[in-house]
Nucleic acid binder design. Structure first.
Lengths: 247, 247
DNA sequence: GCAAAAGTGTTCGTAGTACACCCATGA
DNA sequence: TCATGGGTGTACTACGAACACTTTTGC
């Protein structure tokens, strides 16, 4: 409840609350070379100087947490503001352990984002380096970022089951094989391609054929039909990962 | 990212951030007389003095948001700390619009809770009144609490589908009819009792028979067997509401 | 006996799974 | 012509929806 709602029975002076810093942290996922990657930055200052961490930053006085997350995403990935605005950002939750930052009280709102394969992040103007890291090889992270990342992975995996979010990992035009590859990469399981194909095509609005009937080859093999994302955002019924596995 | 993570390229002084107040808001649901109810409090101060709002309060300097939510829940419902600790609290999300509180910058972490039918909340020591209100008759609420409540309702409905959370609404021993009633009340749909029964009993760990084979009557009709909540917390496969309806 | 709620049995349709098989291309 | 990935066909199975029917109580 906002300030000066009812006070706890013990009495509490609304003007005496300790100030909190509010930040956002981002778990930005992409699929590169059929492996799940996440964007990490190297910290330049103490604490945890030299350690890897999730990108993020302060929420500015006149923006919401979601706006801050979008701004940080554009800055870290080099995407234009417009492109970043179109991407799906998922609020994961808020991490508020009093000791999560050793210096002061910091409450952080975590977001997960799925982006298509992008070039290596530009270094940015400041000291911190940023790079894509394979998910399975993520090193120890600063603060409670390992927890956040684990939650993000679980959430993204679950989201693929009942939304069309997987298309966010794909370029504007993609083959069904590429789409299946996204699921397999995020879930870490193999899928039956024929059944996957039927499932996707029988779900109205999941994908639509790319208008001109061009085809494309992934090297060898029969050229595949191209599709683009459809209007639907939810999947009824869901596309469940085999045996409820979670990697 | 916590304080002094990398700064935005434009430059940002970590010591100059505006202080935020951090609060928790609670959407506490219960089932009374087969109808969904939510706990509301009447505001005693401006802004929105006299208006109804969700219970909640400040996060104290040495507690996490989750701890604050549990504390508030115990205070508002009159439950003992131990009982409140055992209840399931679900973090819904964080509401951070810069203008959501007209006086200052307040970021609020919202939680949903499901409790069995409780006596009318004690007035508490302060001026604010609290009462159970039927969900469908909730008046206009202060701040963005109507948004929070709508999100909470949706989340609770979805949670029932793939968790055993419905047992939280029930007394320690309950009949399958009562459990079905919870689903029907929250979802606003009718269920086929025979199928519901089979579904619940065939899900390992959802419920277990109450040891002594006592039976109970809900007035007329055949006495029903009593069950208590089982160990399981997840439902595989889920118990989907008919036709994906969402009320 | 009748209404009401608990509980059992059975049928039917649909959706997922598994897998055989054909097609189009590069090397 | 072989390997590779795209794409089609089909049988099997499991599970949910629907609903008939029996049981046990209060009135």
């Amino acid at each position: 409840m906002p300030a000066e709602g009812r006070e706890p029975p013990g009495g509490y002076d609304p003007s005496a609350f300790e100030p909190f810093a509010v930040t956002v942290d981002l778990a930005v996922f992409t699929v590169r070379e059929n492996r799940l990657h996440v964007l990490l930055v190297e910290r330049g200052q103490e604490p945890y100087a030299g350690a890897w961490a999730l990108p993020g930053g302060f929420v500015l006085p006149r923006e919401s947490a979601g706006q801050a997350a979008r701004r940080e995403l554009a800055e870290e990935t080099g995407l234009s503001e417009e492109t970043a605005t179109a991407l799906h950002l998922e609020q994961l939750g808020t991490y508020s352990d009093p000791d999560r930052d050793p210096r002061m009280r910091v409450v952080s709102v975590a977001y997960a984002a799925l982006v298509p394969d992008l070039p290596e992040p530009r270094g940015g103007g400041d000291a911190a380096r940023a790079r894509w890291t394979e998910f399975r090889s993520v090193p120890a992270l600063a603060f409670d970022h390992a927890d956040i990342l684990a939650d993000a992975d679980e959430r993204v995996g679950a989201k693929l089951e009942y939304t069309t979010l997987a298309t966010e990992f794909c370029p504007p035009e993609f083959t069904l094989g590429e789409l299946a590859q996204v699921y397999e990469t995020v879930w870490g399981t193999a899928l039956d391609r024929p059944n996957f194909r039927r499932k996707v095509l029988s779900t109205p609005g999941f994908v639509q054929p790319a208008e001109g009937p061009p085809r494309r080859t992934g090297g060898r093999g029969k050229p595949a039909a191209l599709y683009r994302a459809g209007d639907a955002t939810r999947l009824h019924p869901p596309l469940l990962r085999p045996e409820g596995r979670t990697r």
